[in-house]
C-alpha cells in the first residue's frame, strides 16, 4: 500500500502523483521504474519514477491513461492508497556527462526525462531536453524540465508553441548545427523516452549521424524482476530482459519491429477489458445518478 500525497492533472489523460514510498525513494536512481497494481485481480504495470525525494520519502509518477489499469490509476485521488507499488526496478542508464546530452521525450516520456536530465546537468553535462506533443496544452512539465536541463526545446505538431513539427526534425536541426541552443553545440549523446515509433525515428536520425543513443524500452511486463521473460527484446543478436537488463538499450541495436509486434500481442483482449471497464463505470455512474 502506498498513499497518494498529492495529484496534479497535467492533461485530461495525464496525471501526476506524489506517492509516499520511503524505501523506494531512498533507493531510486534516475531512469528506474516501479511496478504498480491498483486493485485485487488487477494487472501489474510498469511506470517510470519521474522524480524522487529521499528526504521526504516520496516518489513521483506520471501516468498516461491508455487502458484499463492506467485509467483506474488515473481516477485515484489525493489520500487514496495504491494497492501495490514495488521498486525501484531496472537500472539507471550509463550515460557519460561529457559533452552535450540531448533528451528526447514524447507523451509520458517528458516526465521520465525529468530526473535523468537533472542528474546529468548536476554531473556537469550540457543538457537539452526536446519534448513534443500534438498541441501546446498537451505538453507536460515544461517548467520542471526547464529547471532541470540547460535548455528546453518544445515541439508541437500544429505549431501552437515552439517548433512546428516532430521532435526528430528538431533533433536533426540540432545535429546539423542550427542554433537551437546557443553555445551547447551538436549532441554528443541522445536518450529517447516515449512512444516506440518516436524512439525508432530518433534512432534512425542519430544512426545516420553516428551519435550514441539510448532508448528506454517499454515492453509488456509482469513481474519486473527477471522471472517471466515476457519483457524480452532483441538487442543486436542477443535476447535481453528489459526489466533487469534495461530498460535503457543502445537504440541502434534494438529490433523495433519485433518490440512493436510483441507489444500488440494482447490488443484485442485489452480492448475487450476496456469495454468491460467502460460498461462497469457507466453502470456505476448511473447508480450514482440514481438512474438504476
Amino acid at each position: 500500500m502506498a498513499r497518494i500525497i498529492s495529484k496534479r492533472v497535467l492533461t485530461p489523460v495525464t496525471k501526476l502523483f506524489v506517492i509516499e514510498a520511503p524505501l523506494i525513494a531512498a533507493a531510486a536512481r534516475p531512469g528506474q521504474f516501479v511496478i504498480v497494481r491498483v486493485r485485487e485481480g488487477g494487472e501489474r504495470i510498469p511506470l517510470t519514477i519521474a522524480d524522487y525525494r529521499p528526504d521526504r520519502g516520496e516518489i513521483i509518477i506520471v501516468v498516461q491513461e491508455v487502458g484499463v489499469t492506467t485509467r483506474l490509476l488515473g481516477a485515484l485521488d489525493e489520500g487514496d492508497d495504491i494497492l501495490d507499488v514495488a521498486g525501484p526496478l531496472g537500472s539507471a542508464p550509463d550515460i557519460s556527462p561529457a559533452g552535450h546530452v540531448v533528451g528526447v521525450g514524447g507523451g509520458f516520456g517528458a516526465a521520465a526525462l525529468l530526473c535523468l536530465m537533472r542528474d546529468l546537468s548536476q554531473r556537469g553535462a550540457r543538457t537539452t531536453a526536446i519534448i513534443g506533443a500534438r498541441q501546446k496544452d498537451l505538453l507536460i512539465l515544461t517548467d520542471e524540465l526547464k529547471a532541470a536541463s540547460g535548455h528546453l526545446d518544445l515541439c508541437t505538431d500544429d505549431g501552437s508553441t515552439g517548433f512546428k513539427g516532430f521532435v526528430t526534425e528538431r533533433l536533426q536541426q540540432l545535429i546539423d548545427g542550427d542554433a537551437v541552443a546557443p553555445g551547447l553545440g551538436p549532441p554528443d549523446r541522445v536518450v529517447a523516452i516515449g512512444p516506440m515509433a518516436m524512439m525508432r525515428a530518433v534512432a534512425d536520425t542519430t544512426r545516420r549521424a553516428g551519435i550514441e543513443t539510448l532508448a528506454s524500452m517499454d515492453p509488456l511486463m509482469i513481474d519486473g524482476t527477471g522471472m517471466c521473460g515476457g519483457c524480452r527484446i532483441t538487442i543486436g543478436n542477443e535476447i535481453k530482459f528489459a526489466c533487469v537488463d534495461g530498460p535503457f538499450f543502445d537504440a541502434h541495436q534494438v529490433d523495433f519491429d519485433e518490440a512493436e509486434r510483441r507489444n500488440k500481442m494482447y490488443v484485442d483482449m485489452e480492448s475487450q477489458a476496456a469495454v468491460r471497464q467502460a460498461h462497469a463505470c457507466g453502470a456505476a455512474s448511473q447508480v450514482r445518478e440514481g438512474a438504476i
Binding site: G41, G42, R276
Partner: peptide, 15 residues
C-alpha cells in the same frame, strides 16, 4: 498469480 483464467473479470489476459 494474475488470475488470467478469470479475464476479463481480472485484468491480465492470456492468449
Amino acid at each position: 498469480l494474475m488470475r488470467a483464467y478469470d479475464f476479463p473479470v481480472s485484468d491480465t489476459p492470456m492468449k
